[in-house]
Design a binder for these strands. Structure first.
Length: 204
DNA sequence: ACTCGGATGGTCT
DNA sequence: GACCATCCGAGTA
């Protein structure tokens, strides 16, 4: 018998480090209600950013700037930023205040609101590029820079546990994507994805 | 199947 | 002014 649907709360976000949360978020549902329009997707790929030690993180070394201040808030809020001038990437800040950790959501599998997502992505068919990539899923779900620092316990963007079973052996861990940094952080396997899922992002 | 380059703008030195 | 936690279309095969 399936259990109840539970919205992830402060307990979850503040009670896990980024690596643990990255694994636990696989199989959960990222949901948005933007301008009254509901869409959702099952999280199938994540990456952990473990500042202050992690050189791959924007908050590496505990660096505080206008952009990184969000990292030092309590877990359970959104960090959304612009990359390459055109893509908006969605992260979840986790762990307690002043421990600057985040989980990047890299891919979701479309769940509800398919027509709206297709429209937002200007696609006719649900191809992998509908939601298979960090800059794509935000477009499909209607997430943007304006949602930076948004509290995920509200009713605009949130994550649900629908109590679906996820076998631990079905998780693939590998090196994170696109980081030009020194070892060991270049190669640490902090990218996680559900094995054999067609919606995971194309990058190696 | 793959490799390559262009688009585009905030952030930090 | 260099660097990006990216994506897509064009070219080659």
């Amino acid at each position: 018998m399936p259990g109840p649907v539970i919205k992830l709360d402060k307990q979850f976000y503040q009670g896990n480090d980024a690596v643990t949360a990255s694994r636990l978020l696989l199989g959960k549902y990222l949901c948005t209600c933007i301008d009254g329009v509901y869409t959702s997707g099952k999280i199938v790929e994540t990456e952990a950013y473990m500042a202050p030690e992690d050189r791959g993180s924007h908050a590496w070394g505990g660096k505080r700037t206008p952009r990184t201040e969000v990292f030092f808030m309590e877990g359970g809020i959104a960090y959304v930023y612009l990359i390459y001038g055109m893509y908006q990437l969605f992260n979840v800040i986790v762990n307690v205040a002043d421990v600057p950790q985040a989980v990047l959501i890299r891919a979701v599998e479309p769940a509800e609101g398919l027509e709206v997502m297709l429209q937002r992505r200007s696609l006719e068919q649900p191809l992998r590029r509908l939601t298979g990539g960090p800059g794509l899923l935000t477009t499909a779900l209607g997430i943007g820079i304006g949602h930076n620092k948004l509290d995920l316990s509200g009713d605009t963007i949130w994550i649900e546990d629908r109590n679906e079973q996820l076998d631990g052996t079905a998780i693939i861990a590998s090196a994170r994507v696109g980081l030009n940094i020194d070892e060991p952080y270049r190669s640490i396997p902090w990218r996680f994805r559900i094995k054999d899922n067609k919606w995971t992002s194309p990058a190696k």
